[in-house]
Amino acid sequence: MSTVTFDKVTFGYDNKQIFSDFSFVFNLDCVNVVMGDSGVGKSTLLRLSMGLNKPSQGQIYCPECSVVFQESRLVEQLTVFDNIDIVLHRAYPDKKQRTKIIVNALQKADILQYAKRYPQQLSGGQRRRAALLRAFLYPSQVMLLDEPFRGLDNAIKQSLAKDFLMWYGDTPKTVIFVTHDVEVAMTVGDYIYKLQDNPANMRLLCDLSTVDKQNRDLYSPYFNKLRQQLNNVCEM
């Protein structure tokens, strides 16, 4: 099974119960956008999927996954190339093959000139792009993104969302995409959910699986209405 399944999961921190008997199956090979208020448990959802936290009850089925974190989490002391390289060692033991893959990808993402540079020499947007690239190149059936474009300005956000779509087009996976940004949600999402209440549960807000992701007009009447709806539901 190459999708993420939560089966009667209970999990909480010392003072707060986040999930109680929570069951959910994410849609296979789709972009599942998860929105919700701060603190409701979106990051926890991802951490449980990654296996960084273990539920006190219940089970989570999650195959091999790539992650894009809130911070780009690039190793400051390694070049951009090396940052991606260390992650692909296991999947591609042959160095030549690995190098070819990375170079091609960097070229496609238009950051090949930064290959030998260090993360601190890149702009915020370029770092996120590198992190995104790293996640896409890592062979996995699932990708988890935790507010990956947080803190960037809108133009860069849109540009990165477009990049995401480009990479996604080549290698579709089951994606759980946590975001606060309505525009981004509408750009990339197949299904838009809201994680709400305490203990949390998922509420489907919108099904966009039939709308072609590559050619969305976000200012069409349909999307304008959706935008309004989403803004009301997810008061930021």
Binding site: M50, G51, L52, C65, S66, V67, F69, E71, R73, V75, I86, V87, H89, R90, R134, Y138
Partner: peptide, 12 residues
């Protein structure tokens, strides 16, 4: 956080 990233990506 880097170590966490390595754990998730199963860096050998």
């Amino acid at each position: 956080d880097i170590l966490e990233m390595c754990a998730v990506f199963k860096v050998p």
